[in-house]
Design a protein around this nucleic acid. Sequence first.
DNA 1: TTCCGCCTCGGCCGAACGGACGATCCCTAG
DNA 2: CTAGGGATCGTCCGTTCGGCCGAGGCGGAA
Lengths: 188, 188
Amino acid sequence: MEVVAAVADGAEAVSEARRLRPDVCLLDIRMPKLDGLEVTRVLAGPGVENPLRVVIVTTFDLDEYVYGALRSGATGFLLKDSGPTLLIEAVRAAAAGDALVSPSVTVRLLQHLAQPKRAVPAMNDPLTDRELDVVRLIARGRTNQEVAAELFVSLSTVKTHLGSIFAKLGVRNRVEIAAWAWESGVVS
Amino acid sequence: MEVVAAVADGAEAVSEARRLRPDVCLLDIRMPKLDGLEVTRVLAGPGVENPLRVVIVTTFDLDEYVYGALRSGATGFLLKDSGPTLLIEAVRAAAAGDALVSPSVTVRLLQHLAQPKRAVPAMNDPLTDRELDVVRLIARGRTNQEVAAELFVSLSTVKTHLGSIFAKLGVRNRVEIAAWAWESGVVS
DNA sequence: TTCCGCCTCGGCCGAACGGACGATCCCTAG
DNA sequence: CTAGGGATCGTCCGTTCGGCCGAGGCGGAA
């Protein structure tokens, strides 16, 4: 691991990075002249031909910064309290094309990923496996006839399952079933 | 850091974890009797009163496992090729209530986070504002009659708009409209 | 002014949907 | 053995959906 450059502001970061083309760039967010996120967009953003690996290292862990950085093309996000071990691991990961994010940031990321589950009113009466099969197909826009064909059952059976699903979910038509499926993550 | 127990299968994991209540549990996914994900759900899943911190350690990095684990309540996901450094950091993070995910898994997670945008096939012919109004209501499960009432137009008008939407999106029924609306972010 | 796109309505009709019954089979728990 | 739940099928019936016509008003662009 070799440090090939150290710069003082965002503009310098861009020019030096383009000249030296390092394997990994460590960037702060708060920098003079050019924001760290803008630098990231220029060096690694969507549409860049030879994107560099960028790891954001900052003390600000605001959600807006995190999502902004990751959308800008960053392959890592470290808080400065992470300690040297994680910093080294993050550089190694970035060089390998992977991404390492600070644990305290990751936990919030995961909450965003994991919670589209229980946004739904609850489910006193869970759906059976077969009913979930029907839900998944309905949510994709299949008609009852098509569902019957794909599940190798009769139209009557599909309608029976649909009746149970209506009662359990407390909905009135198939579109509400689809909406529930998308909200609860049954389909994606 | 002290190892208080090591067990051979999922059922044993649950009973020992409940008896000893360790700060952190390391779990494999492939285990006899009880799946690692099921164990996670029992020990740390949604609705558990005193959830334990669970870190999944596995060689299988299939996406279904990752999302399943995180939805089940895991606060970490490590691949067995991560090396001892990351394992230790993951345990520390879990004990602190944070979460550490393997870099090679994180990079895929970030890709899913960074692009919830243009997954839709395209749109040669964009919907008009009025048609979008209809789409939004349809996607929430309203009937044509209800849409007409909420938009202060007649049933015929709603059906006309629906016809245009069908043609523009290339779909065949209202549920596919709803699915498109969810995928494209028109509704959330 | 003459188009053209958008929004607004109406009628007709076949297909699909959803509700309300009842019925059989199988498996598991008590 | 019996009871219950899940999955499977069927019929009847009223409502809704979606397609296919046509028509008028209204605003901007040619």
